[in-house]
Design a protein around this nucleic acid. Sequence first.
DNA 1: TCATTAACTGTCG
DNA 2: CGACAGTTAATGA
Length: 232
Amino acid sequence: MDCFSCENHQCIIKKNCRQEKLRSFIQRKATLRCKKGQNFIIEGAPVHGLYFVQNGKVKVAKTGLNGKEQIVRFTGNGETIGHRGFGAGQTYQINAVALENTVLCNFSTDTLKEMLMEVPTLTYELMTFYAEELNRSETKVKKFAQMTVREKVIDALLYINRKFGRTHDLLNLQLSRKEISDFAGTTEEQVIRTLSSLRKDGLIETTGKRIGIKNVELLRKEISEHNYFLDS
DNA sequence: TCATTAACTGTCG
DNA sequence: CGACAGTTAATGA
């Protein structure tokens, strides 16, 4: 698919694709189709450019010493992955795994570098994205240090809801309890217990893997003193 | 259907 | 709160 007919209007390439200077570069992009569970960026592997999600969902994570995983963020349509590869070092410091069948656009580092040199609006928008990412990262440090397990789980649920939405109260992103714990910074058992507790309180519904949020306002209220508005 | 995987529970340090 | 062990429920070949 070419960028002109792409529906992802928040994608920074899409936003700038009308610029004449970018025309030839955009033709150089590669399209990659990933199956569910595919690990298309491997921690420690050489950087092979920047990715944009054209269609699908991806988790970005770091692996600890004992095999413990820390999910950094989830990405959906139009979002950027692998941007840290631009900086120092020639290897990725993250893993990226497709959570469902996903189509990705890939630009090589060299191609993107040329594009950034040519088009200031593209460079500025990428810079804004880096700034937002840094803000999110800093906020997450604070949350991990100050939130209780229950608050961290609520925060994770609201994040998924903000990012992927829900249909008939059910979250549009299906995650295992383990994945929720890897994102929230706690353990699988704690997530299971917290979800049961939230269900008893009538705040959520669970049917197997699926989680339904019944009362967003009450959940939001529980973590309101922890800067929910920062949209991390 | 049966075997494997994930969700859940109790308990202990 | 996290880790371990054990049970029950869900999934998929």
